[in-house]
Every structure is written in structure tokens, then in C-alpha cells.
């Protein structure tokens, strides 16, 4: 079941993404409603992170496009924030918690500009929202996994966007942090924000998300959580490996075949 939305905040059209010629996402057609808490659910290797990276323009696409507020990402960048996976950075980097959160303001500052007082206030405010104000001067390598995740969230909050893409914010965090994060996300939603979360735990998905996207290399389902999380769709998502899709992907890679006949035209959008 794939519910398409009228006036979506995010529209993904015929999106195919390949790594090393091997498609990991096939023809995704997806629309997402605003002002909601959305979960992207699927097994390992389903392309969940790939989907939001492609929407954020971080990886080239083989075909298709994504639009936000019916515009290209470039035009609305200030309104969109991205929270990468915690493991994607080196936490031994010489920076304090506050330094990292302040980075959330860099986009608004632009090139060459230094942070002004308002930026510093915003960073401290964001840290307070995630309950980390006492750690502002801590070196980031001294943080626990949950604290690192909170710092990343604070950085996104400091950006003051309308749409937030979060890659596995609940991975490897303690239960207290998980509860604090979901509370925060709910408050954000109630304030009119749209939050898209890559998530791997089915159990909690039911109670966390208003809208659920089921993904396993292709779009299996998308709609209000209560309607989408049913036995049939879950079996389609998790059960039965998509051997044909995987094999075709392998074949494309081995034969060095392009995923699309004229990929040059298709990747035009990626920058």
C-alpha cells in the first residue's frame, strides 16, 4: 500500500541510486506529508540511508529526482537539516561539544563570516534543548554514544530548519537518550516541523511514527503507520530475499553496465 499525498513537502520521483553500478534503490516514487514524524523502516541493506542521502544530494542518482516544497534542494537548503550517522565522523577530532553545535549555524553565516553573539546563543539554546548544556566545553571524544547523538541533534536544532532528515538517531544510544530524543522529536512535530527518521526497530516504530515508509530496495509501503504496519507488508519488506533484484544488480556491476541508458542526463540534478 502506497499512499500518495496531496501537496507533499517531499516528493521523490522515479529515483534510482546505484553504488559502483549496482542499483541499491529501484524506481522510488514517494510523497511525504508535512508536519509529521516519519519513519523509514526496512532490513539491513534496504537502502534506507541511501534514500535520505540521495534526497540531500550527498550521492549521485542514476535517475529521477527529489523535490522539497516543490523546489530543488538548492533553493530550500536553509529549511532542510541533516543528521548523519554517528559513526560517520571521527569523534577524536579536536573540538568541543559547543564547537560542533555551532557548526549548525555555519550555513546561515556563509563563507568567511565569523559566528556572532546570536549564533552563540542559538548554539547554547540547542544544547539546552537536548540536556547537554553542562557538557558545552567537553572534548567530543569523551562523550558516550548517546551523548554524541544528542550533540548531533543539537547541531541540527541550531540550524533552525523546517525539515529534518535523521540517519539512525536511535542506533547505539541508551534508553534514557532514546526517550529524550523521541520526546524532543514530538515537540518539534507539534511545532510544525517535519522529521524523517531512518529506523531499524519495528517494535518502537509503531508508537514513534505518524507515517511509515517501508523500504527494501524498492518502495514496499508508505502511509499512516497504523495502516502500513500490517502483516502482509512487513512480510514483503522483511521476508523473502529479493534474489532477482540483487542478482540483476550484481550483473549490472559485473558487466560494467550503466543503470540507465543515458546516465549523463539523469545525474544532472545531483549538484
Amino acid at each position: 500500500m502506497i499512499v500518495q499525498v496531496k501537496d507533499p513537502v517531499i516528493e521523490v520521483h522515479d529515483l534510482t541510486v546505484s553504488y559502483d553500478r549496482k542499483p541499491v534503490l529501484w524506481d522510488i516514487d514517494l510523497t511525504l506529508p508535512g508536519n509529521s514524524l516519519i519513519g523509514i523502516i526496512g532490513p539491513n541493506g534496504a537502502g534506507k540511508s541511501t534514500l535520505i542521502k540521495a534526497i540531500m544530494g550527498l550521492i549521485p542518482v542514476s535517475s529521477g529526482y527529489a523535490k522539497i516544497y516543490d523546489q530543488e534542494l538548492k533553493a530550500v537548503r536553509q529549511q532542510v537539516s541533516y543528521v548523519p550517522q554517528r559513526e560517520s565522523v571521527d569523534w577524536d577530532f579536536p573540538a568541543s561539544v559547543y564547537d560542533v553545535v555551532l557548526m549548525g549555524r555555519y550555513g546561515k553565516m556563509g563563507l568567511f563570516k565569523r559566528p556572532v553573539k546570536a549564533d552563540k546563543d542559538a548554539a547554547m539554546d540547542a544544547l539546552t534543548k537536548v540536556g547537554m548544556q553542562a557538557y558545552a566545553n567537553r572534548q567530543i571524544s569523551q562523550l558516550s554514544g548517546g551523548q554524541q547523538q544528542r550533540v548531533f541533534l543539537a547541531r541540527a536544532l541550531a540550524q533552525d530548519a523546517d525539515i529534518y532528515f535523521m540517519d539512525e538517531p536511535f542506533a547505539g544510544v541508551d534508553i534514557a537518550t532514546e526517550n529524550a530524543i523521541i520526546e524532543l522529536l514530538r515537540t518539534m512535530r507539534d511545532n510544525g516541523k517535519t522529521i524523517i527518521v531512518v529506523h531499524h526497530d519495528l517494535q518502537s516504530a509503531v508508537e514513534y511514527f505518524d507515517w511509515t515508509v517501508l523500504l527494501n530496495m524498492r518502495l514496499v509501503g508508505s502511509g499512516p503507520t497504523a495502516e502500513v504496519l500490517n502483516q502482509e507488508l512487513l512480510e514483503k519488506t522483511y521476508g523473502g530475499k529479493l534474489t532477482v533484484l540483487t542478482k540483476v544488480g550484481e550483473l549490472l556491476r559485473k558487466k560494467e553496465f550503466p543503470a540507465r541508458e543515458n546516465p549523463a542526463k539523469a545525474t544532472k540534478w545531483k549538484r
Binding site: L58, R77, Y82, S88, V89, A95, Q159
Partner: peptide, 22 residues
Amino acid sequence: LLFYKEFKLLCFDRAYAHTLGF
């Protein structure tokens, strides 16, 4: 000196720098 802020961000989190539009 001019690019201090940008280089710091780039070295720490390249993907995030990209999403900020740098």
C-alpha cells in the same frame, strides 16, 4: 585564516558541510 571555519567543518564532517550548502 580566511577559511578557518570552513576547513574545520570540512575536516570534521564533509557530508554535513555539503548539506549546509558549502
